[in-house]
Computed example of a mutant assay.
Amino acid sequence: MDRASPVPLYFQLARQLEQAIEDGALTPGSLLGNEIELAARLGLSRPTVRQAIRSLVDKGLLVRRRGVGTQVVHTGVTRPLELSSLYDDMAAAGLHPGTRVLHNARAQAPPEVTAALGLPETAQVAVVHRLRLSRGEPVAYLCNYLPGDLLELPTGALESSGLYALMRRHGITLHSAQQSVGARAGTAEECDLLGEPAGAALLTVRRISYDDRGRPVEYGAHVYRASRYAFEFRLLVRG
């Protein structure tokens, strides 16, 4: 702690704890002890420690448990709003992404999908449902649809890599996407897969991705745990 800094001590402590959680030095389930123990260990006042902990509890990174102390809950995922895969973003952030492929087959696409991909109504598409994990914790339930003749999608490859990385390896160059972000109560199946209570609020994303020839190559319908995930925007003033 830099006591000569104009930055408040509680903020310095909160940032150091948050960085330790993001880096994996403090893993989910780690105990920090109670406020009195922490204050004594760090040489800080109890109100300073309490304020730092409260700020991380409000962010969903810590939880107070009676008779136990303060415990790390999870590492959240903050994702920049750009055309990239969740797998690649998590790997770059050191969040140890994992994947469970729940469904991987060819099927006739629903009308919403064929319209988005510019395909005939009777077209067969690749349908892939995956559960994305961070350090073993579910973060997102991803449903993707691709033109059936675009590329092969082996289940093993989908479990060890991101979808966009597979597309790049097959010579598909992604150029742009049309995306909408929303929120709704999760279905029973979604909440069960994501480890959320029934009816929990989930973030939703619908995305149509295009290659460098302007061809729609992917339609995604994804849901994310609001308690584990956030989008990051950069806003500019229009002159």
Rank of each mutant, 00 (worst) to 15 (best):
T173V: 15
R206G: 05
G199L: 02
P80V: 13
R65Y: 05
S176I: 00
A52H: 03
S180E: 13
A39R: 04
L151V: 11
M167N: 01
L146K: 00
A221D: 14
V127F: 06
G148T: 11
S176W: 02
A39K: 06
L38R: 04
Y145E: 07
M90T: 07
G239Q: 11
G171W: 08
A115L: 08
G29K: 14
V72W: 08
D192I: 00
T27E: 15
E190M: 09
H175Q: 14
A91Q: 13
F233Q: 09
L95R: 15
L202K: 03
V139L: 13
L153T: 12
V63F: 03
S176M: 03
V57F: 01
E137H: 10
A40W: 02
L131K: 04
R234W: 01
C143E: 10
R225S: 10
R135G: 01
A20M: 11
G214S: 05
F233M: 03
V72I: 12
R132F: 01
V72P: 05
F233R: 13
V68S: 10
G195V: 13
R3D: 12
S45H: 11
V7K: 12
V181I: 14
M167D: 04
L193M: 12
R64V: 05
Q12D: 10
L81Q: 09
T99P: 00
L26H: 06
I208R: 08
V113W: 10
L95M: 12
A226C: 05
Y219A: 10
L151H: 06
G171S: 08
K59Q: 14
L236F: 10
L31N: 15
R100T: 08
D212S: 11
V217D: 05
R225E: 01
T187E: 08
R106K: 13
S84T: 08
D212F: 02
R100D: 08
F11R: 11
E82Q: 13
Q19P: 00
Q124F: 09
M1N: 03
V128G: 01
Q108L: 09
T204D: 04
V101K: 04
V205M: 09
R15E: 15
L32M: 14
L166K: 04
G94K: 13
A185H: 13
L236P: 00
L158V: 07
Y224K: 05
L95V: 06
L151M: 15
S161N: 14
D211M: 04
H175N: 05
R106Q: 13
L13M: 11
G33A: 12
P120K: 06
V181Y: 09
A40Q: 15
M167H: 04
D212V: 03
Y145F: 15
R50P: 00
E159C: 07
E82A: 13
Q124K: 07
I53D: 06
P111V: 05
R234M: 07
A115F: 01
G24A: 07
I53V: 14
E190T: 07
Q19F: 02
D89M: 11
R168W: 01
L202A: 05
H96F: 02
L83G: 02
T173P: 02
G69A: 08
L81G: 00
E232C: 04
A126H: 09
L95C: 03
R15Q: 15
F231D: 08
A198R: 10
A92T: 10
E22V: 11
S30E: 10
H129T: 13
R215V: 14
T75Q: 14
L174F: 06
A226D: 02
F11T: 10
N144A: 09
S227D: 15
L150E: 02
A52R: 03
R130F: 02
E232I: 01
